[in-house]
């Protein structure tokens, strides 16, 4: 069928058609050849531990704003600025102590008085700053006028807190946990349970809840796997965990130790 339709083309047209077809084939071949080369591998990003809280807690765990916060008090200005004390940084020229009567300009407000040292300091020392803020200038931030209640960090122990607690424990265990080597050893999984004292130290010895992934090839490494997991817990203790949540982390029921590259 295709041959018949070509019959009524002139010779030049047929030749051009043939060359064009050949050029197309060559182009496709060249593209395929290029694609065959391995692309440059992307750099592998650094590992990052991510713990997800996939439950939505039914109770609010956001910090409670205090019912009656203390009214914010404006800092009381002292009539005279405190005398400037030489700061630790050596300066050639001591800045003049501002005198309210020197200039005709209105006395700038205390908060705008520049700190005399040119180098920035991490924590301003009030004595040397020459400000007119008193020591009590933070008084009244947060809290109620009638109570010192500053609000609680969280209303309840929810999924987000659990996730961060779990992450803290995992993070402390991980440097000490190395699984044994062997044929199929990466399939072994040991689950431990242990108790902790309020200061984070181990209460008693971790016990093996269960093991899985054991086959004939890795059976000799199974007890070694459990031993190493227990060792990881013993070396990680005492754990550094928030005391406020001791009730939540005093007992670890199912700590699963495995290996995955």
């Amino acid at each position: 069928m295709p041959m018949a339709s070509l019959a009524h083309l002139s010779r030049e047209e047929r030749l051009g058609l043939g060359i064009a077809a050949a050029a197309h084939v060559a182009l496709v071949a060249a593209l395929v050849w290029q694609v065959r080369d391995d692309p440059t591998p992307l750099p592998i990003p650094e590992r990052m531990t991510v713990s997800l809280a996939d439950e939505v807690s039914l109770e609010s765990t956001a910090p409670d704003p205090s019912a009656e916060p203390q009214a914010a008090l404006a800092p009381v200005l002292s009539p005279e600025p405190e005398p400037v004390v030489e700061p630790e940084v050596v300066r050639e020229v001591p800045l003049p102590v501002p005198r309210p009567t020197v200039t005709s300009r209105p006395t700038p407000p205390a908060t705008e008085r520049p700190t005399p040292t040119p180098t920035p300091r991490a924590t301003p020392t009030r004595q040397a700053s020459g400000t007119r803020l008193g020591d009590d200038f933070l008084q009244g931030v947060g809290g109620s006028e009638r109570s010192n209640d500053r609000g609680s960090p969280a209303a309840a122990f929810g999924a987000a807190e659990q996730a961060s607690l779990v992450q803290a424990i995992s993070r402390q265990l991980k440097p000490h946990w190395s699984a044994p080597q062997g044929v199929d050893a990466e399939r072994l999984v040991t689950v431990l349970a242990w108790e902790l004292n309020p200061d984070g130290s181990l209460k008693g010895r971790p016990r093996v809840v269960t093991q899985s992934g054991i086959n004939d090839s890795n059976r000799p490494q199974a007890s070694l796997h459990a031993e190493r997991a227990i060792r990881a817990v013993q070396l990680a203790a005492p754990f550094d965990l928030p005391e406020g949540y001791y009730d939540q982390w005093k007992s670890i029921r199912n700590a699963r130790f495995d290996r995955n590259l």
């Binding site: 779990v166 424990i169 995992s170 699984a179 990881a232 939540q248 199912n254």
Partner: peptide, 24 residues
């Protein structure tokens, strides 16, 4: 998961620690 999550009243924590470093 091969490990059943703990019952609600057990109260203990459950998690996984994975060794993903190269063989040491």
């Amino acid at each position: 998961a091969e490990v059943a999550p703990p019952a609600e009243d057990e109260g203990g924590l459950s998690f996984t620690v994975t060794d993903d470093s190269a063989w040491q």
